[in-house]
Structures are given as structure tokens and as C-alpha cells.
Design a protein around this nucleic acid. Structure first.
Length: 423
RNA sequence: GGUGAGGUGGCUGAGUGGUCGAAAGCACCGCUUUGCUAAAGCGGCAUACUCGAAAGGGUAUCGAGGGUUCAAAUCCCUCCCUCACCGCCA
């Protein structure tokens, strides 16, 4: 959520930066400002009247104490009361409307963000390694896992529908090995505190991290209890400290969490394609940081490096791209995507998206810290996948496939998996 | 799911209709005293919004929302949460 003062005082800047995202969100700015004007006018008048009433009511109390008759004054104040409730409704109405509008407005891309229209304009920042040369035609993870009995798409679809999968046998074991490997890496080497979070969350939590109100259709909802299945661990982990005022020495907070993630993927391209690339349910290890504003961009670099480290240890070729203004997500001010090479797909797959949200989420969830000046300030929040599992699974199988269709696992996974090869 | 108790400032905790944004204590921050530590004394110490160029005002907030009243921390209703016990359950 953007600061209404920023919008009020730097209207043109805000509009320009919103406009750089494409879309028409900048058109809402004037409506918000008009709402803000109305709200403040109503509040000012309301406060005057409340002051009047307060004074007179105290006077009534004092006079009653002296045994005087006050019925005339009481009748007079009653009239003020009506006007107060009218103005109160007006002010509250404006306030609610203003918040609704603000919640719909995306974050401002940071000033240095590459300007562009869509994903085609995202610059590559760096690459690590190079595409594996297998020396034979690469098989897809679908074919590989079928031979090895690692995944069961058909039976999963029979009971749950398409875009669900069952991991079976060594497939399930590998999935579990990856989760443990990733969590251990982030907690033991990079200082993240492990969180096992609730998988069902209230709508407020989703408003906090900005999945709601705009992206309702992407979420699974349990209507009976008004709870949502989480689309990413970002939601429960960032919201851990919602409504809190953290002490300076508690920052930065660094959390790593494994959770399944649930996404309806309504309207997504590629939902129909076979394989693990896009699922309604998938596993992910997520990194979250809550930091002081001054350090958030540095921390984005370190958080991204932490995610990259996993791929490096697994010996998987990847590239890092920065999202341009037209492609960056709703709440983010700066985002790096990490894409891993999958030879069987002949494509790079997005396995991590690392974002700095600035104070955008913190405002929504009222997450603050007590600064050195003794005042409360909004924290900055960051998160990134470290990493998404299914696409990592894909890259791993396809990169380490042998001519006979078996898989030779990279060394760091041997202990976790309990063997060096599959098949 | 049932029954009961309860939610007041960073913490503890008073406060059952008016002079209560809220006693007191602790914690914290200044200053004084002091050989050091400690103690004592004095003062300060919530948040948000709003008016104002500023100085400085004002309003709201005692879990949340509604209601009664000239006036609500205090009375009424709904909801949320916490705790205890019972039932059920991995």
C-alpha cells in the first residue's frame, strides 16, 4: 500500500512510476486524491463538533453535580449528536473507500528499474555455469520419471483433477531429500530461522502480503471458515509479525519455511501442458526477511545469492534476470527471477522470484519497528523462493540423466537421498 | 462442539456512567545528588488521524464492530482472541 501522503505530495511522480508498469492503475490516483480531500474535510468538521459536544457534556456533568437543571442544554446537544453521526458516517465511508482504492494500487517500481513492457524486456543480470552437454538427445522428466516410477500423473488426476501429481517411490524420496537439503542450507549456512507455518490463513493475512483483494481468483478458499489455502509461504511467514512494533535489535528477521503451495492458476498459460511445470499444488522452500529500510536493497542481493547457492551446490546451470517495470509483480519494487536450465524442455524454468517489497506489505499489515529516533517506522519486507521444488526436480532429472535413463545425483544430495543414483 | 473466566499503555495492574488518555508500580530516557556500583529526588515516557508556515492546537483510540445516553473503559448486543475444564480427534 502506498503512503497517501506520498501520493498527495508527489502526485506526478507517483503517476509516472505507476504508468511505467503499463496498465491503467495510474488513472485511479485522482480518484484517491478526491476521496482523500473529502475524507479530511469531513474529519475536520467532525472533530470540531466532537470537541463542542465534549465541552458541553462536561459542563452538564458539572452543573448536575451542583443540582442545576440542564434539560435545555441537553436538548441542544442532542442536535449536535445527529450531525456528528452523519459526519462520522461520511468520514468512515471515505476512509473505507480510500483504503479499498489504495489496496488496489500496485507498488512503485524502484527508480533504477529497467523500463520495459513485458517479459521480453527483462535484462539478464548474470548467468552461472552453462547448459549441460549430454552427448545424446535429452529426455523430458516425464519420460524419465515414467521409466523410474517417480511420478504418477494419471492416478493423481483421477482423484484430484489435472495439474496434480503424486510423487511415488524414489520420486517421493527425492522430493523429501530436496526439501531437507534446501532447508538445511538456508538455516545452517545462511542464518535463516526455520518456520513450519499454518497452511490455511485468514483473508487479512493475504491482504497483508497483497494477494488480496486483487488476486482472489488465484486462491483456493474454504468458504465455510473463510480461510484460504496459502499460495506461498510468504503469506504466513511475513505475516508472523503483523501488527507488531519490533525492536531495532530484532532486525533483520530471516525466516525459511517449507510448505506446499496451492494455486488455482486461473487463466494461466501452460496449465494444460504435461509434466511438473505448472501445478495446482507444489512444494516450495521460501525465504523471508523483515529488515530496516536502509538495508533492504542490499538484503535483496544477499537473499537472491542465498537462493542461487542452492542451484550452485546442485551444479545446475541458471541465469538471473531482473524484472522490468512492465513485468514486475503487484507488490514488488524490485525483483530478480532465477531461471534454471532444463535440457529436456530446452528452456529455462523460473524456480525463484526474489523481491524487495519496500514498505508496501508492511503498511498493509501494520508491521513496524522502533527506530533510533524513538519513532515507529514501517519495516521493509523481502521474500524469494529458495527454491520451488517441482521445476528444480525437473532440472535435476533432465540435467543428470544418463544414456540408459537412470539419474546420477549430484554429490550434496547423496546423503539426503540415501543413494547416488536413481534407477 | 459444550461450559466457565477473561481481554485496560512496553509489562504488572486499578478503575461499574461525567472532572479518565486513563491511578499506582515496574521498565525505559533525561537531570540532580554521589568516590564507584547502587540508592534517592525531580521531570519525561502510547498510537493514529487532523488543523497550522511554524510554534502549537484538536479529535479518536481501554480486543473489534454496533447500540443506549447530553456524556461510555464503565451499561446492552454481535464477533474475534486467550485461558481452564468437558466431549471428540491425528
Amino acid at each position: 500500500m502506498l503512503d497517501i501522503r506520498l501520493i498527495r505530495e508527489n502526485t506526478d511522480l507517483v503517476k509516472a512510476r505507476l504508468q511505467s508498469r503499463g496498465g491503467d492503475s495510474y488513472l485511479r490516483v485522482d480518484e484517491i486524491l478526491e476521496c482523500d480531500r473529502q475524507r479530511r474535510a469531513a474529519e475536520t468538521r467532525l472533530q470540531q463538533l466532537q470537541g463542542d459536544r465534549k465541552r458541553i457534556s462536561k459542563e452538564i456533568g458539572a452543573r448536575k453535580g451542583r443540582g442545576e437543571d440542564t434539560s435545555a442544554v441537553e436538548a441542544e446537544v442532542r442536535g449536535i449528536g445527529d450531525e456528528i453521526s452523519r459526519l462520522n458516517e461520511e468520514a468512515t465511508g471515505c476512509d473505507v473507500r480510500q483504503r479499498e482504492l489504495l489496496l488496489q494500487l500496485p507498488n512503485l517500481p524502484h527508480p533504477g528499474a529497467p523500463v520495459g513492457a513485458d517479459a521480453a524486456d527483462n535484462p539478464e543480470v548474470r548467468a552461472w555455469g552453462s547448459p549441460v552437454s549430454l552427448g545424446f538427445p535429452a529426455k523430458s522428466h516425464i519420460e524419465l520419471s515414467e521409466r523410474l516410477g517417480l511420478l504418477d500423473f494419471e492416478r493423481a488426476a483421477r482423484m484430484s483433477g489435472s495439474a496434480f501429481v503424486a510423487f511415488t517411490g524414489d520420486g517421493a524420496r527425492l522430493e523429501r531429500a530436496l526439501i531437507n537439503f534446501l532447508l538445511d542450507l538456508q538455516t545452517r549456512q545462511h542464518g535463516y530461522v526455520e518456520i513450519a507455518a499454518p497452511l490455511l490463513v485468514r483473508p487479512e493475512a493475504l491482504v497483508g502480503t497483497s494477494q488480496l483483494p486483487k488476486f482472489e481468483e488465484q486462491l483456493y478458499r474454504c468458504e465455510r471458515d473463510d480461510l484460504y489455502l496459502l499460495p506461498t509461504a510468504e503469506v504466513p511467514v511475513t505475516n508472523l509479525h503483523r501488527e507488531e512494533i519490533l525492536a531495532l535489535d530484532q532486525l533483520p528477521k530471516k525466516y525459511a519455511a517449507y510448505t506446499p503451495c496451492f494455486r488455482r492458476e486461473a487463466g494461466s498459460a501452460g496449465l494444460g501442458t504435461r509434466g511438473l511445470i505448472r501445478m495446482h499444488q507444489f512444494d516450495k522452500v521460501e525465504l523471508v526477511q523483515i529488515v530496516k529500510p536502509e538495508t533492504s536493497f542490499e538484503e535483496l542481493e544477499s537473499l537472491t545469492a542465498h537462493a542461487e547457492k542452492a542451484l550452485q551446490l546442485l551444479g545446475l546451470h541458471y541465469r538471473v534476470i531482473e524484472l522490468c517495470t512492465g513485468d514486475i509483480g503487484f507488490g514488488a519494487t524490485k525483483t530478480y527471477d532465477i531461471e534454471v536450465w532444463a535440457p529436456g524442455q530446452n528452456a529455462y524454468l523460473e524456480v525463484s522470484s526474489c523481491s524487495n517489497f519496500g514498505d508496501f506489505q508492511a503498511r498493509r499489515m501494520n508491521l513496524r519497528f522502533k527506530g533510533e529516533d524513538g519513532k515507529n517506522h514501517f519495516c521493509h519486507t523481502l521474500n524469494g523462493s529458495g527454491t520451488a521444488l517441482p521445476r528444480l526436480f525437473v532440472a535435476l532429472l533432465e540435467t543428470y540423466q544418463q544414456p540408459d535413463g537412470s539419474i546420477r545425483l549430484p554429490e550434496p544430495l547423496h546423503a539426503y537421498f540415501g543413494a547416488a543414483t536413481i534407477g
